[in-house]
Amino acid sequence: MLMVYKLKVNTMGRCISTSLAKRFSFEDLVNKLTDKYRCTRYRDALHIEDDGHIFLFRYGVMVTWDISHDCEKRIRHEIEPFCINPLPDPYFEHFNFELNADQNRISGDRICIEGSDALQLMAVSHGLAQSSKLNELESYAEQTIEETAHIPRSMAVKGRTNLSRRDISKMRGKLFLVESDINLHHALLDTPEFFWEYPEMENLYIMTAKYLDIQPRIEVLNRKLTIIHEIFGMLADEQKHKHSSLLEWIIIWLIAIEILIFLFHDLLKWF
């Protein structure tokens, strides 16, 4: 009897995860692309099939699997009008991949997946997208800490800052925006809701998140966020101190004026 074996064909290529913007105008983006491409929506992500696989995530990240440079350029051009606060310098992460591999693993920036199903690619893409967004938030927090490092140094040396009350208010406003922006995206770094519907795919996500050190990096980001919050608190105290000092000087001048009026009017009888 002739035995027929179905051979698995290994597919190899490149995978790129790119953080393009703070977020997408997602509903409008989905409506635009579903009219033109073969698309499947998974909660806050969109899967596009072109000459490869493209996954778009609501929080401004695109993950591509083996698409041509021309296709990537075309898709990015179509996405551009739907980018909210586009990043001047997008964050890229590059990987090689192999489908229909012997086992699921990631090593040396090479992703190996036992199958080739779109859901498997989506599961891995969730981890890649979170890593790219985390890169953006890490850089944002680090830049903010560097820009405000002179404040605690000045307070340590002089016991105060040289900033005016107006400058302190502006700095507090900026720190508040940074803190709220990071907190807003922080929930996106939890296990995606996609795996509520496809729990059998979660192991691929866990493998990816572990390789990319998602959890340790979130803990580091939390510490940076704590530093930003403490600087915010220092500025709030400094602003209160400056305001209190201003009120004290106003009271002192009012008392001085009242004393002068008493001297000239009641004692010297000048008027």
Rank of each mutant, 00 (worst) to 15 (best):
L175Q: 03
T191A: 05
E179W: 07
V178T: 12
I182F: 07
V157D: 13
Y198F: 14
H150S: 12
G159W: 13
A209E: 10
M207P: 02
V157Y: 09
W196P: 00
W196D: 03
R153Q: 15
D190V: 00
L204E: 08
F194Q: 06
P199A: 02
P152Y: 13
K210L: 11
G173M: 08
M201T: 11
E202V: 15
I168W: 03
D190Q: 12
T208Y: 01
M171R: 12
L177N: 09
I182Y: 07
Y198G: 01
I206V: 11
E200A: 05
P199V: 07
N162G: 15
V178L: 02
R165L: 07
S154Y: 04
N162F: 13
S154H: 09
E200Y: 01
H185S: 14
M171Y: 07
A156S: 12
S169C: 05
L188M: 11
D167Y: 02
S154A: 15
A209H: 06
S180C: 00
P199H: 04
I168R: 00
S180T: 04
I206A: 05
H150C: 03
S169G: 12
P152C: 09
K174E: 14
M171D: 04
D181M: 03
M201E: 12
R172A: 03
N183I: 02
K170E: 15
P199K: 01
M207T: 14
G173I: 13
M201Q: 12
T161K: 01
F176S: 14
R153E: 15
I206D: 06
P152R: 06
V157T: 11
L189T: 03
E202H: 05
R166I: 12
I168H: 02
I206L: 13
R160T: 15
L175K: 04
N183S: 12
S164Q: 05
L189H: 10
D167C: 01
G173V: 13
M155V: 14
N183R: 12
R165S: 10
A209W: 08
E179Q: 08
G173A: 08
D167T: 05
S180R: 08
F194L: 14
K174N: 13
L204Q: 09
E200P: 01
R172M: 15
S164R: 01
L163M: 15
I182Q: 03
G159A: 08
Y205L: 09
E193F: 02
T161H: 00
T148N: 10
E179A: 06
L177Y: 09
T191Q: 07
I168V: 15
D190R: 13
N203P: 03
M201C: 06
E179R: 11
M155D: 05
H150R: 03
K174A: 10
T191R: 12
L177V: 03
M171Q: 14
R172H: 02
D167H: 06
F195W: 07
D190P: 00
I206N: 03
M171W: 01
P199F: 06
K158V: 02
F195M: 10
L184K: 05
S164W: 07
E202M: 04
R172L: 15
E197R: 11
F194H: 07
